[in-house]
Design a protein around this nucleic acid. Structure first.
Length: 139
DNA sequence: GCCAACGTTGGC
DNA sequence: GCCAACGTTGGC
């Protein structure tokens, strides 16, 4: 099962809003980048990912899960891009900050460090485990 | 609020 | 198909 990382500006769509959507989840619209699209297309139902707050917070704050696979993004008038639906699974006990990730030599190859601007990123199993261990999951 | 990095667009 | 111009992202 693959792991992912989704970036969102809290002013636009925050973790609290995602949690409030509950089991219904929410569509992850607005991606307009081909590499990010490729990742969206590769996602399977049940894949989990990190929810990252950019600008405000700059930290991984929670875990989401894919509940609907790639389908057209109706907000894209060119018809080129699509989206998946995500639901919140759990919050981290404490956020894992960008600074912390940058400072950890085990995480130096993370896409978040090397290709900061990519809004949907793959996360390796090793990175996934390290960050979960750092943040811990709410029970 | 600045600005570097970088992806996309469009003229040629 | 190249590449300059432009727009956007996101850390600082």
């Amino acid at each position: 099962m693959a792991h992912w990382l989704y970036k969102s500006e809290p002013d636009t769509w925050s973790w609290d809003q995602q949690v409030a959507r509950g089991e219904a989840g929410e569509h992850w619209n607005g991606v307009r980048n081909y590499l990010a699209r490729k990742h969206l297309q590769a996602m399977k139902i049940g894949d989990q990912g990190f929810f990252y707050h950019s600008n405000e917070g700059k930290a991984i704050v929670g875990v989401v899960e894919v509940i609907k696979e790639y389908y057209p993004d109706h907000t894209d008038e060119t018809g080129r891009f699509g989206m998946v639906d995500l639901k919140a699974i759990k919050s981290l006990k404490r956020p894992v900050t960008l600074q912390e990730i940058k400072d950890d030599p085990r995480l130096k190859d993370m896409v978040l460090v090397n290709n900061m601007r990519l809004s949907v990123q793959p996360v390796t199993d090793a990175e996934w485990a390290i960050i979960l261990a750092l943040g811990g999951l709410e029970s």
